[in-house]
Every structure is written in structure tokens, then in C-alpha cells.
């Protein structure tokens, strides 16, 4: 018996295509956000609120990852925003080749921002780089303040955390201070944005953060 060295990343192909995506986005000065959250936490609603806040300033497109349906992309298309649906056919996360094909359907030259709704899942999408500028995670109040203790990976991987559905705080025993402490223990300086995607509360602060990052991406492209 002999041992043959392979020494190869398991996700080599995914990482390679992610890198190509990232270079493509940078070349066109497009900022790409990979949005991670549980089913029903308000990913699509937050995307719609973000569009509302930023559509006068930036050209935006959306890529909707879903196991099967195209309900979400239709919601976005109704707003007059380009939306590409990616059905993963049962897979629990998006992979970089799916994004590559979706992006082919978009006019990158005329875009500043792509919002990417990943499949509702706090685990699998974390391991798959798509070529995004940043991952952000959305947790909604009804899910409970202990989630950072159960899903540390997604909180560590995120550059910003959105706490959605804060209009429902009076209905739940969600401890906002405890939640932020748990988050910051995992990811010391990550900003937390409490919002209500449906009534618009807090969305401005989130949109400001995002605008700043889009501008930084533009500035880097200019260099």
C-alpha cells in the first residue's frame, strides 16, 4: 500500500469560479452583497426596502436563489428592478457557477449594486464563496436572541448583521442587548442594524452603511 498526496481544496472549482466572479465584479465596479438568513426571516423584504432607499442613487439588480420557485424574483421584477432567478434544484446553497451564469444575464456595465438572496439556511451557504464583496446576515426577532450561539459560523463570516422585524419586539422575549453581546463575542466589530423591513424603521442607517461600501468599491475601481 502506498500513500499518494493530493493536497487539493475540496471546493477548488467553486473557489476558482468565485475568484473569477470577484474579478469580473471589480472590473465593472459593481458591489455584490451575499445575503444569508433563515427561511422567512425577511430577506426579500429587506432587499425591497434596500432598493427603495437606494434606487435613486444606484443602479441595482437582484439575484434570487431559491430551491424551486420564482415567487421572490417576481416580487422584485414588479418593482422594475432586473431580477434573475436561480433555482438550485434542491441544493441548500448557491454555488459560484450558478452566479456566473446568472450574471451573464445582467448588464454589469450599467450596474452599481447586486443584491444576492441566498437559499434560506444558516449553515451551508457559509462555506461557499460566490465572489461577493461582503456577506451580510439577517436575523429576525421571532427566531430568538440565542441564534449566534447555535450558528456561530454565519455571524463570524458576516461584515454586517441586520436584526429584522424589530416592530415585533413587544411580542417576543427577544433580548436585544444579549443578542448584540453574543454577536460581538463572535465578531468583535461587526455593525448590527436593527430594522423593520416592512415599516422602514432603521433602514436608513443600513442603507448608509451599504452606500459607503459601494463608494469604496467605486473608488478602488478608479485607482
Amino acid at each position: 500500500m502506498e500513500t499518494v498526496d493530493i493536497k487539493q481544496p475540496v471546493l477548488q472549482l467553486n473557489d476558482k469560479l468565485a475568484k473569477e466572479n470577484r474579478e469580473n465584479f471589480a472590473k465593472h465596479g459593481v458591489y455584490v452583497l451575499n445575503i444569508l438568513a433563515s427561511p422567512g426571516s425577511g430577506k426579500t423584504s429587506t432587499i425591497m426596502a434596500t432598493i427603495d432607499a437606494l434606487r435613486d442613487t444606484y443602479n441595482i439588480a437582484v439575484i434570487e436563489g431559491d430551491i424551486a420557485s420564482n415567487v421572490d424574483s417576481e416580487r422584485i421584477a414588479k418593482l422594475g428592478i432586473p431580477a434573475v432567478q436561480v433555482n438550485t434544484g434542491g441544493a441548500c446553497h448557491l454555488e459560484s457557477d450558478m452566479i456566473k451564469r446568472a450574471v451573464d444575464q445582467l448588464d454589469l456595465d450599467n450596474l452599481d449594486l447586486i443584491l444576492l438572496e441566498n437559499v434560506g439556511n444558516l449553515i451551508c451557504p457559509v462555506d461557499f464563496d460566490l465572489g461577493e464583496n461582503a456577506k451580510v446576515m439577517i436575523l429576525s426577532v421571532p427566531e430568538g436572541d440565542d441564534k449566534p450561539l447555535k450558528y456561530p459560523g454565519v455571524f463570524q463570516a458576516s461584515k454586517a448583521v441586520i436584526l429584522n422585524k424589530i416592530d415585533t419586539l413587544p411580542m417576543f422575549d427577544f433580548d436585544q442587548k444579549a443578542f448584540e453581546d453574543h454577536v460581538h463575542a463572535l465578531n468583535h466589530e461587526v455593525p448590527v442594524f436593527p430594522i423593520s423591513a416592512t415599516n422602514g424603521q432603521g433602514v436608513d442607517a443600513w442603507a448608509d452603511w451599504l452606500s459607503k461600501h459601494i463608494e469604496d468599491a467605486h473608488a478602488q475601481q478608479g485607482e
Binding site: 502506498e2 500513500t3 499518494v4 493536497k7 475540496v10 471546493l11 462555506d127
Partner: peptide, 9 residues
């Protein structure tokens, strides 16, 4: 997340 090696004949 790496494939290190295989033991083979």
C-alpha cells in the same frame, strides 16, 4: 477543507 492523500495499491 482539503483532500490530503489517498492510500492505494
Amino acid at each position: 477543507l482539503t483532500i490530503d492523500s489517498i492510500d492505494v495499491d
